[in-house]
Every structure is written in C-alpha cells, then in structure tokens.
Simulated assay, not measured.
Amino acid sequence: MAKGKDIRITIILECTTCVRKSVNKASKGISRYMTQKNRRNMPNRLELRKFCRYCGKHTIHGEITK
C-alpha cells in the first residue's frame, strides 16, 4: 500500500551568515539543524529564522543538499 516516493524528507538547515564568515576563517563553526519537510507542499528550498550559537543571534538558515 505504500507509495514508492517518500513525501516527507529529512533536510539540513545551515546558517547563511556563518557560511559567509567561514571563508574569512573568522567563525568557530557553522550552525546546522536537521528537520523534515513535505515535498508536495514545499517543493522550493526552505529558509527559516533559527538561533545560531556561533553568531549569538537569530539568523536565516537555508536548506542544503546532502
């Protein structure tokens, strides 16, 4: 009865501010979150405002591929 494609997929959200800083080696690390999204409802890349422990503030976290 199950369909071939999984509708809910696991994604990784990465801080966009830390990624820019890591080029200059000013950051200690990159903040990442794991979450799930519904492929039918959100076909585009997901961007959420989450807390980054390396920046110390809420920043935009964007979806990256595995």
Rank of each mutant, 00 (worst) to 15 (best):
L13C: 05
G56R: 06
G62R: 14
C55F: 09
K5A: 12
T16R: 12
Y33G: 02
C15F: 09
K66N: 14
L48G: 02
I12D: 07
M1V: 10
C52K: 04
G4V: 05
T59Y: 02
R32Y: 07
K25C: 10
T65A: 06
E14P: 00
P43K: 15
T65S: 08
H58Q: 15
G62S: 13
E47D: 11
I11C: 10
H58R: 15
G56S: 07
K28S: 02
I7A: 08
G29I: 11
K25A: 10
L48Q: 13
I9H: 12
M34Q: 13
T16G: 07
I30N: 11
Q36H: 09
E63I: 00
R39D: 08
C55V: 14
K25R: 14
Y54G: 02
G29W: 06
L48E: 13
N24L: 09
C55G: 04
N41R: 15
I30P: 00
N38F: 01
R39I: 01
R45W: 03
L48K: 14
T16K: 13
G56K: 05
F51T: 05
R39G: 01
I60A: 15
R45F: 04
K3H: 13
T10G: 06
I9V: 13
R20T: 11
V23Y: 10
S31G: 14
